[in-house]
Amino acid sequence: MSDRDALRKQMEKDGIEYLLVQFVDITGAAKVKMVPASAFDAAIDEGAGFAGGAVWGVGQGPHSHDMLARIDLDSYSPIAWKPNTARFASDLFVDGEAHPYCPRTNFKRVLSDAREAGYVFNVGMEPEHFLVVRDDEGALRVWDPDEVDSLSKPCYDFRSMAPAMEYLQELTASLNRLGWGVYQCDHEDANGQFEVNFDYTDALTTADRVTFFRMAASQLAAKYGAIATFMPKPFSDRTGSGLHAHYHLADAENGNDLFQSENDGRGLGCSQLAYHFIGGVLHHARALCAVTSPTVNCYKRLQLGAGLQSSRSGYTWTPAFIAYGDNNRTQMIRTAGPGHFEDRTISSATNPYLALAAY
């Protein structure tokens, strides 16, 4: 919905009184200013002002001119836990010019180049996360109010997931009201670890949704006495959290999936373009890893040798092998279906705009 007058009417219908003008820093953390809905036009045309030197990695110091975050109308997201408020993803400007250190602006530049070449990048991402609490000494431990989430293999276990069902249902309902198409939730391989899956779409929208998902999970988890953490490896003896990316290139004119082929001699249903694409990913895998696994903690998740079986469940499910395969979760690139690749190495701590732009 890119027409401001139509959106203004929708906001009035939705009872929106406040807007969160939101962008991300270099780590992917959401940064916001709250403005009244009466400042809607100013948020579009001028933007909300920020002192860039107060934010990590946006190329500014205390002497720099103000950054102005201008909202993207297509990112309108009413907030379920604060019904009078809506969030807008924003792009940064300085002195009237697009700011090149804005991760979202940079990603839009990359996607524009791809579209000029005839491609649209479609992506779905799977945000794994832990629900935790802090003990009296400040250390993290698994959120387990019923003291039932203790299996060494808790993945998909009903009893282990049951205490979190209300949280997961509220999260699902709030996202589906925004049209995300959440289609499943599960207890993951580690105690206190969960995943929510929603429909794939164009890469920019997916990056915006991952950012909002983190915001939503953190606020809704707090209602249930938990902390939602996207730290990739909060516990050394449990499987870590990823942000697995499923993707393909589509034709910019007709939307057809360009990664599928019925004439694949390897039997995976993939086109020559698809193999060329993942060939580039594998060739640059180590460099990509610096962006997709940006913190020291990320590398506690990526394991080789004995580390592959260092989790309580018996497997880390986190391949550090630069390889592709069929429907095989021990490879960096899993072919989940014809023309459908999944990168399993991406960390839950990554900045989705930077990670997908690097692709």
Rank of each mutant, 00 (worst) to 15 (best):
G59W: 05
A98F: 03
F158S: 12
E147K: 15
D91N: 15
Y101L: 11
P163C: 07
G96M: 08
T105I: 06
R115M: 09
T105D: 03
A162P: 01
G138L: 09
E128K: 01
A80D: 02
A89N: 08
P62H: 11
T105W: 04
E128L: 00
V148S: 04
M161Q: 14
H65C: 09
L92D: 05
C102A: 08
D66H: 10
D157E: 10
S75H: 08
A114I: 07
D146E: 13
P100N: 07
R70T: 03
R87F: 08
R70Y: 06
D144W: 02
G57I: 04
S160E: 04
A139S: 14
L151K: 14
S112C: 10
P78Q: 03
A114D: 10
T85S: 11
A89M: 15
P145L: 06
S150M: 09
G59A: 12
G124C: 09
H99G: 03
D91T: 13
V110C: 10
R134N: 10
K82P: 01
G138I: 06
H129P: 02
V142E: 04
A162F: 11
P83C: 05
V132Y: 00
H99N: 14
Y76T: 00
M125T: 11
E147N: 15
N122K: 11
M161G: 12
V142N: 03
M67Q: 13
L111C: 14
G61R: 08
G138D: 07
K108E: 11
F93R: 12
D135V: 04
P145N: 06
P100D: 11
D135C: 06
G138Q: 07
C102Q: 05
V148L: 12
I79R: 00
P154Q: 06
L68V: 07
R109D: 13
P100I: 07
W81Y: 14
P145H: 06
P62R: 09
V148P: 00
V94N: 08
K108V: 11
K108M: 14
S152F: 12
V123F: 03
G118D: 11
R70H: 06
D144S: 04
A86H: 02
W81H: 13
P78K: 02
V94P: 07
P163T: 04
Y156V: 03
N122I: 09
E128D: 02
P62G: 08
A86E: 00
D146F: 07
A162R: 14
D144E: 06
D95F: 09
R134G: 09
R87P: 01
G61L: 06
Y76F: 15
Y101M: 14
A139T: 13
P62N: 10
D157L: 06
H65R: 14
S77K: 04
D91K: 15
G96I: 09
Q60E: 11
V123T: 13
P83S: 11
R159M: 13
S77G: 07
G124H: 04
D157N: 13
F158Q: 13
R159T: 15
E126T: 06
A98P: 10
Y101S: 15
H63N: 15
R87M: 15
P163H: 05
V58S: 01
R134A: 13
D95C: 14
